[in-house]
């Protein structure tokens, strides 16, 4: 498409949605013995794919060239289980306060992203109207 906003913003919203599901799963299993909290590395992978960190990139001119970073279009978000900690006697390691604060942050982020999506659309409307 002509604007990178329309590709990256939905991807970031997908990442946020996946995170919301992970938080929901962790909170739903708050009282499940031996449950270990799940995390999803979607956001980290996306930021890596967009080249936000200072990693050395291989130069490519075609999609099929050998590449050391994934294209942001292919980022899936791998689910990981954090099983090296324990919070309670029953082996469960869900910290409810941390999950709720993650959830609040994530919701605000999603709402902000959808706001940005609106602005990205409205910019075109402004450009179209100002010609008249």
């Amino acid at each position: 498409m002509f604007d990178i906003n329309f590709e990256v913003l939905p991807k970031a919203m997908d990442a946020s949605l996946k995170k919301q599901q992970t938080i929901a799963q962790n909170i739903a299993n708050y009282n499940t013995p031996n449950y270990k909290r799940k995390t999803v590395a979607f956001e980290e992978e996306l930021s890596k794919a967009l080249g936000d960190n200072n990693e050395l990139k291989l130069k490519t001119t075609k999609d099929r060239h050998l590449n050391n970073t994934l294209s942001y279009k292919k980022v899936q978000g791998e689910v990981k289980t954090q099983d090296n900690t324990s919070l309670r006697n029953d082996g469960n390691n869900v910290d409810i306060d941390a999950e709720v604060s993650d959830m609040v942050q994530n919701t605000l982020k999603y709402n902000g992203l959808s706001r940005m999506m609106t602005y990205a659309i409205n910019r075109y409307g402004t450009a179209i109207r100002s010609v008249r």
């Binding site: 946020s16 938080i23 999603y110 706001r115």
Partner: peptide, 17 residues
């Protein structure tokens, strides 16, 4: 609380544009 926040996300997605 998770349901409420998912609902708010859903609402903001509806209001895109």
């Amino acid at each position: 609380a998770v349901i409420n926040s998912a609902k708010s996300m859903y609402n903001s997605a509806i209001n895109i544009g």
